[in-house]
Design a protein around this nucleic acid. Structure first.
Lengths: 134, 134, 134, 134
DNA sequence: GTGGTCTAGACCACT
DNA sequence: GTGGTCTAGACCACC
């Protein structure tokens, strides 16, 4: 198996969101490439011990966003990468996470410099790692 | 009034969380100090035009975390400063937000540089403002 | 009620898609404007005699596309209009319908001119009509 | 071979539908005439690298609609031309596709002019090609 | 076998 | 009251 998905049921982020995030990240970091097959809805549901509908919901959103393409009766595949959001929209979608981080950082007494360095190291870590380290 | 709270109903972060965050932030930046009085549950609810239950929920969490102390019949006050976190602990608390941001950013196709610049401008915007303008 | 939604259960287009289409169209033709409230998930489900999940699915997609904004505990509202797709993506999303129409038109022996005129009259009809005529 | 069928797996329209559409189109444009032979189910399945069931399903629908006739042991042939539709009937058959296109176009923010131009270019592309290149 | 849709009913978070 | 998530189980279309 080329790609190992892991979810944590105890987390506050919903399972379907965890699936989406991991697939998107894997695609963005080229761990998954165009044409690669993903586990089928039923197979992944069984593997993660969740309801097939939960997996289907995640796959549906990924398909709507053009990350994957589902082929009836054949399975799910990574689609060609293409920019679908305007730059204003991309910014708008990043903003909540940005707000969260900065608010938290200020409350904890970090400086701009501190945070920028942390962002850089995190970027390297996530873009670089090859597989399932938490 | 020493401290002016502002919430934005249109935001995706719940109102009770906004209240909590702003109080914590004001304490962290010394805009609120030990012994300062906060508006009562009913007064704040009226001022913000939200349900009193929402304010009560926020105050309950702040009290639970030792940020404020409610003195029956007298009102709500900022509690003694909490012990300072070790730097490892501060980092640990920042990690989830950091993870979130970097993951989103990579998925949306932002570069390290992009994000660092965005962090800086957001930092200025939030640290500079004197009270919670959205 | 400012806006009257109608679905047909016999149709091959899924119910949730019919809901999405009608809301998008109403927004695009200014029959629904920023800030207007939509029927609640449960209310609409009851009105259309479908499962609340079906309505929720439609609302979720509309929210993801920035057409509506859902506010926990308060309801669903029309969001500010903003372009979220790149022009290439907009074209890509129109293409299937375009293909369908042209293929059908050719098979039925229509000329380019015929179709262009039909497109124009249909455009006027849909953009102009104020309420639920099929 | 008088007629060269091409399908695109990547498309959202099912393969069996693509086969049907292409045969109907070829008949409507007189590229296929009464009595012309089509490839057998097994031959076509092998040629297109699809499941024979898929081809059989397409041929079944074409036979049901009187477009082709299968002569046991001899093969599949184009049937006598169907009675020409009245112009009202032709319009009625085009309407669903027309509705779909215009609705999508409005929702995506295209103007009448945009769509008319797109219709024209699509028309040229499809009418001009001699056989089904995606 | 595959994914897509819908129903029924549960639990939770927020107001 | 509101919407969000998840489960369980059904039916359909496509390959």
């Amino acid at each position: 198996m080329a790609f190992d998905l892991r979810i944590s049921t105890g987390s506050s982020t919903p399972i379907f969101r965890q699936i989406i995030d991991q697939v998107r990240l894997a695609v963005a970091t080229a761990r998954l490439k165009e044409g690669d097959a993903l586990a089928s809805v039923r197979a992944l549901a069984e593997q993660l011990v969740v309801n097939p509908n939960t997996v289907a919901k995640a796959y549906a959103e990924l398909a709507r966003d053009g990350v994957i393409a589902t082929h009836q009766g054949k399975g799910v595949f990574i689609a060609a990468r293409r920019p679908i959001y305007t730059s204003a929209e991309r910014l708008r979608r990043l903003e909540p996470a940005l707000d969260d981080l900065v608010r938290e950082a200020i409350a904890l007494g970090f400086s701009t410099d501190d945070v920028q360095k942390l962002v850089q190291t995190h970027f390297r870590k996530m873009a670089g790692r090859k597989d399932g380290e938490s």
